[in-house]
């Protein structure tokens, strides 16, 4: 049984259809990535999973139950955490508050403030700084930390390494591997193959609102050129 299954989902922005008959699944404890160009529908799909975009037709199954009608807050409480592309740090809250707010309704579990500060020591140094004074890398760590503090089973990461310095990217990759090693499944969205090839065992390729290819990472490598052509990376 999969942890999350999106079955034949159609999603619209106004009258324009953004996702066509999209089906993806995430197994417990795995890292899967979703790769596609700008505007391919990656963020739209993540938002649909989180209940932030309505699913016009199709199903969202979570933990073996039909979760199509669950609200965003119920999905959050059921164990899905969302780390958006633009991080969406609470600007008027300081770093510590940005983390603590996730514990208010978060689930019980292995992750607590102390462990998040251990994972990202830089955040501890900046504990009392307001959210809108952080650098891009700090914001990304904070967004991941905030998501972790809800003690999720599934972490949705939207382009976590975008626009970050290579050293920070290395740190984040290590952090993601560590988080996954603790049993948290990760759905990783990226524009290119660089990070997904390092972390994910399975890949989905999306273009123009359609899933064009899905399969194991080694199969992707074997047919890399042909597959990259499919989604014009």
């Amino acid at each position: 049984m999969s942890l999350l299954e999106m079955q034949n989902c159609d999603v619209f922005y106004g009258k324009a259809q953004a996702l066509h008959d999209v089906s993806i699944s995430v197994e417990e404890g795995e890292i899967v990535s979703l790769i596609g160009r700008n505007g391919a529908g990656k963020s739209t799909l993540l938002k649909a999973i989180m209940g932030l975009n309505p699913i016009a037709s199709g199903k969202r199954m979570y933990d073996g139950r039909d979760a199509t009608r669950l609200s965003t807050e119920m999905l959050g409480r059921s164990g899905i955490a969302y780390v958006p592309e633009d991080r969406r740090i609470f600007a008027t809250l300081n770093v510590d508050e940005n983390l603590r707010i996730a514990t208010v309704m978060g689930r019980e579990g292995a992750w607590n403030l102390e462990r998040v500060y251990d994972l990202f020591p830089r955040l501890k140094e900046r504990m009392t700084s307001r959210g809108d004074t952080l650098s891009g890398g700090e914001q990304q760590m904070l967004a991941v930390g905030r998501g972790l503090l809800t003690n999720p089973e599934l972490l949705l990461l939207d382009e976590p390494t975008e626009g970050l310095a290579p050293l920070v990217v290395e740190d984040l990759i290590k952090a993601m591997a560590l988080i996954n090693a603790e049993g948290v499944a990760i759905l990783l969205v990226e524009q290119n193959l660089k990070v997904p090839l390092k972390l994910a065992k399975r890949q989905y390729l999306i273009d123009n609102g359609h899933i064009r290819w899905s399969g194991k990472t080694e199969d992707l490598l074997a047919e890399r050129e042909k597959i990259e052509g499919l989604i014009s990376l």
Partner: peptide, 17 residues
Amino acid sequence: RAASGDPEMVRTLGINV
């Protein structure tokens, strides 16, 4: 304070905005 800035993000944390 958080919900005044970004209610949607607060909802993802399981809080009933």
